[in-house]
Amino acid sequence: MKPAIVMEEITKRYGKGSTTVDALRGVNMAVYPGEVIGLIGASGSGKTTLLQCLGSIIDPTAGRMELGGEAIFDNGWLIKDVRAFRRDKIGFIFQFAYLIPFLTNLENVMMPMLLAGQPDKSAHQRAMELLTVLDIADKAEFKPYQLSGGQAQRVAIARALSNNPPVILADEPTAPLDSQKSLMVVDLLNKLANQYGTAIIVVTHDEVIIPTFKRLYRIREGVVYEEKGEGREISA
């Protein structure tokens, strides 16, 4: 099976001369469709920089990247419209849900599809499908402020999946949740990755969920090391 995410010798350098900082140093990584992997490391180790490079938010200094089987960077961007690629091919989940407060939960999930040019009817159908899969369809017409933290993250996950991206990048998605809800979120991510064939990277410090990953990448001072995870069964 071909990886959905490939990073080859990715570097990111800030500054020049005596102020140079190598935030990423020759990163190599591969994540396969349907796989959820953990990315761990101390604060300042380069996790956010790695995610931003992979998410086409910042430019790597050098190296090569593939997403969804498509080469997107080879010592320079190979795609014409980086913003459109990011919108259509990468789903993002953050520490907080960041739902648009004046839209309903259904409209929040529909928004990325409408921005991508999907007809209203098909966007509505896809959004309801995802909210149903995530067991929160009964809150479709509610506003975000009417949700609990765990419910809001479910809507955020639905939004990230809305354009059926091959890749989802999750940055501390369980940080504001208690242990039980954290495990529920990771369980959902695993089920959705398997169902939709999505490759998911989860950046986390959460000691509750780290043992659930079968594979881990640990980053230290910009260098990434692959580790075998425990793959502990989730009992949320």
Rank of each mutant, 00 (worst) to 15 (best):
K2P: 15
P3Y: 14
A4I: 02
I5F: 13
V6L: 13
M7D: 01
E9A: 15
E9L: 03
T11P: 00
G15E: 04
K16H: 05
G17V: 02
S18N: 10
S18Y: 08
T19Q: 12
V21W: 05
D22T: 10
A23T: 11
A23Y: 08
R25V: 14
G26D: 11
G26H: 12
V27R: 05
N28M: 01
P33Q: 07
V36L: 12
V36W: 12
G38M: 12
G38R: 10
L39I: 15
L39V: 15
G41F: 06
G41P: 09
G44M: 05
K47L: 06
L50D: 10
L50A: 14
L51N: 11
L54P: 05
G55W: 07
S56R: 01
S56C: 15
S56G: 00
I57E: 01
I58R: 02
T61V: 05
G63P: 08
M65E: 00
M65V: 00
L67T: 08
L67P: 07
A71D: 03
I72C: 00
N75P: 03
N75H: 14
G76F: 00
G76I: 01
K80Y: 00
K80E: 08
A84K: 14
A84T: 14
R86E: 09
R86K: 12
G91Y: 12
F92D: 13
I93A: 02
F96K: 11
I100V: 14
I100D: 03
P101R: 00
T104N: 04
E107C: 01
N108I: 01
M113E: 05
L114P: 03
L115N: 06
P119C: 02
P119R: 10
S122T: 15
A123I: 10
R126V: 13
L131Q: 09
V133S: 03
I136V: 15
E141D: 15
E141W: 02
L147R: 05
L147C: 07
S148L: 04
S148M: 02
Q153L: 07
I157F: 09
A158M: 12
S162V: 11
S162K: 01
N164T: 14
P165W: 10
P166W: 06
V167D: 11
E172N: 09
T174Q: 13
A175H: 13
A175V: 06
P176D: 09
P176K: 04
L177I: 12
D178L: 06
K181H: 10
K181A: 09
S182A: 15
V185Q: 00
V185H: 01
V186A: 02
K191I: 00
Q195T: 04
Y196M: 03
I201L: 15
T204W: 04
H205F: 08
D206S: 08
V208W: 03
I210N: 10
T212H: 11
R215V: 12
L216A: 10
Y217W: 06
R218S: 13
R220V: 13
E221Y: 01
E221G: 00
E221N: 10
G222Y: 07
V223F: 01
V224K: 12
E226M: 10
E227C: 08
S235T: 15
